[in-house]
Simulated scan of single mutants.
Amino acid sequence: MRIIIDCDPGNGVPGANIDDGLALALAIAAPQLSLELISIVAGNTPVETGYAVASDLIQRLGAAVPVRQGAARALREAPEPWRDRLDRSVDRCGLRELWARTPAPPPRPAGKPLAPQAIGELICDNPGAITLVATGPLTNVAIALQLYPELVRAVNEIVIMGGTFHVPGYIKDTNFGLDPEAAHAVLTSGAPITLVPMDVTTRTQLRHTDLDRLSAVENDLSRYLEQTLRPWIAYSMQTRGLPGCWIHDALTIAWLLDPSLTTVVEDYVDVSLDGLTRGMTCRYGREGLRLEVGIPEPRGAKVRILQSIDNDRLLALIEGYIHSYI
């Protein structure tokens, strides 16, 4: 399977989530996947930081995968409140020292913001052959759809980590909340979409003991994950009261490798653009609504939505591919 991963990785960055990096590692380790492009969007990290993280991983592995820098901010949403939340929380919590022994990704010369063009050209030049996996805000994907309208029919599938329906404490998630207009444009585009929402990803869990097993076999990928995942697990335990950390984005790649890991339903999905609910994800297939007054007809096409996950099988799958990496 030929894939693009559009992401916002933060491995090695104090306070930044590591799930994009784990998704990249799994995609690189799986021989049945051909990772043909990594595109970077601002989200979990600023776009320059994500570009440095992905470039560092590819250089460490000697992999021949192009990395392209993309959108530095959302289509309309103001970036400052999000950057304050995402980039400075580690210092407000006083937990930067957790990364004291983790080498930071070296800065890279700023790449040109060509990710949307690279995404559109690769998909449209290979109709039906490319699956696009989006694990950050959907800004790059929305711009690619604007530049290449034929992408809707040319893409094999778009697999999106984003959205939340019934997760306590979340009206919206970071990926859709940071750029609601982009999420709305992609979800209602009519492209074939599989959604991996927080409702299922918050049922994943990676503990220190799981990472011990993951890194028991030494290779370049396991060493990288040991270095960069360990502090985030500790950070997540202290700030979220979890026994480990969620691995949201890794589920997108794991599902491609083994769809039987999850159950799936279909529904129409959109994102609110106004008021208190701005950035909130809505399921609104009319046949499932008990009250539809004032609710418009669905736009786009039905979206497949992952519902459940066997976490033990998920971890075993990740471990197997990372251990077999050469």
Rank of each mutant, 00 (worst) to 15 (best):
M1G: 10
R2P: 02
I3G: 00
I5N: 07
G10V: 03
D19H: 12
L22S: 01
A27T: 09
L37W: 05
G43V: 09
E48I: 06
A52K: 08
A52D: 07
S55M: 02
S55Y: 01
V67Y: 03
P81G: 08
W82L: 12
W82N: 00
D84T: 12
T102M: 08
R108A: 12
R108G: 04
Q117W: 11
I119D: 06
L132V: 14
A144H: 07
Q146I: 04
V152E: 05
A154H: 15
V155C: 14
N156W: 10
V167T: 15
Y170M: 14
I171W: 05
K172Q: 11
N175P: 02
E181A: 12
H184N: 09
L187Y: 02
A191H: 07
P192N: 11
L195M: 08
P197W: 06
T204K: 10
D210N: 10
L214C: 02
S215I: 11
A216R: 13
N219F: 10
Y235P: 03
Q238A: 15
G244W: 07
I247C: 08
L251S: 05
D258S: 13
L261Q: 07
T263I: 03
V271Q: 04
V271S: 03
L273C: 09
R278P: 01
C282A: 13
P296H: 05
G300R: 06
I305G: 06
I305C: 06
Y325N: 04
